[in-house]
């Protein structure tokens, strides 16, 4: 069963002058990794941010439906705060808060009203899931900014996990990282998909091929092709997908 489904999702920027997403229909499967690929400015990040309503922060107009477990998240009855708790997000640049490692992970549970007793277990759990626990367990009180870039990104993943989301959105999580850190994050993604539904935007087609189960190819705001990753990369149905994958543009 699909976890998230969009129905003719349209997104407009700059007071309606830029049509960034054009009638996107997609079904994202639960406990799978869905990769969004396409050249710069094709709307893949816009699509990702439409899934947890982060686009709203930049004054963007959204039309169409995004159903999560069958409920439209753009419905007026939906509380965006609760929604974002269910859908975690990890950004392109690692962006830990200028606090201790502990406080970074504790941030989410704390704002949702959790007090100290259970906190430590949640933090340990989250850090273990993010494969960071062994590296930081002795220095949880140190500033998160002292960690390396790859560690910071895993910390951001742990921070997102700590509020116990159902879906994780990754916006080019490895673009600022070195190959070794990238490999660790990819391994982590494969691990996490057992518990979470994952959507990942990536610039790197090898990465999409390596980690994802499904792939969606975007071009100029349109969803060109969507299907199982194997099929997309080996027998693309659309000429434009094939051109992109074989490196003829983008």
């Amino acid at each position: 069963m699909s976890k998230i489904e969009t129905r003719s999702l349209n997104v407009y920027y700059d007071g309606g002058t830029v049509h960034a997403l054009k009638g996107v229909n997609i079904k994202i499967e639960a406990n799978k990794i869905t990769a969004l690929i396409g050249p710069s400015g094709c709307g893949k990040t816009t699509f990702l941010r439409a899934l947890n309503r982060m686009n709203e922060l930049n004054g963007v107009k959204t039309r169409g439906k995004v159903l999560m477990d069958g409920v439209d998240i753009y419905s007026r009855k939906v509380d965006v705060i609760q929604l974002r708790k269910r859908i975690g997000m990890v950004f392109q640049q690692p962006n830990p808060f200028p606090m201790s490692i502990f406080d970074n992970v504790a941030y989410g549970p704390r704002i949702h009203g959790l007090r100290n007793r259970k906190l430590e277990r949640i933090i340990e759990e989250s850090l273990k899931k993010a494969a960071l626990w062994e590296e930081v367990k002795d220095r949880l009180e140190e500033s998160a900014l002292k960690l390396s870039g790859g560690q910071q990104q895993r910390l951001c993943i742990a921070r997102a996990l700590a509020v116990n989301p159902e879906v994780l959105l990754f916006d080019e999580p490895c673009s600022a990282l070195d190959p070794v850190s990238t490999a660790r994050i990819e391994a982590l993604l494969r691990e996490l998909k057992n518990d979470y539904t994952i959507v990942i935007v990536t610039h790197n087609m090898q990465q999409a091929a390596r980690v994802s189960d499904f792939t969606a190819f975007f071009l100029m705001g349109e969803l060109i092709e969507f299907g199982e990753t194997m099929q997309i990369f080996e027998k693309p149905r659309d000429k434009r997908t094939e051109d992109y994958i074989t490196g003829r543009f983008g």
């Binding site: 009855k77 609760q82 708790k85």
Partner: peptide, 16 residues
């Protein structure tokens, strides 16, 4: 994970 059940509770309603 039952520890986190309390933060999992998710209702589609305004927290007025």
């Amino acid at each position: 994970m039952s520890d986190s059940e309390c933060i999992r509770t998710f209702k589609f309603k305004f927290r007025r």
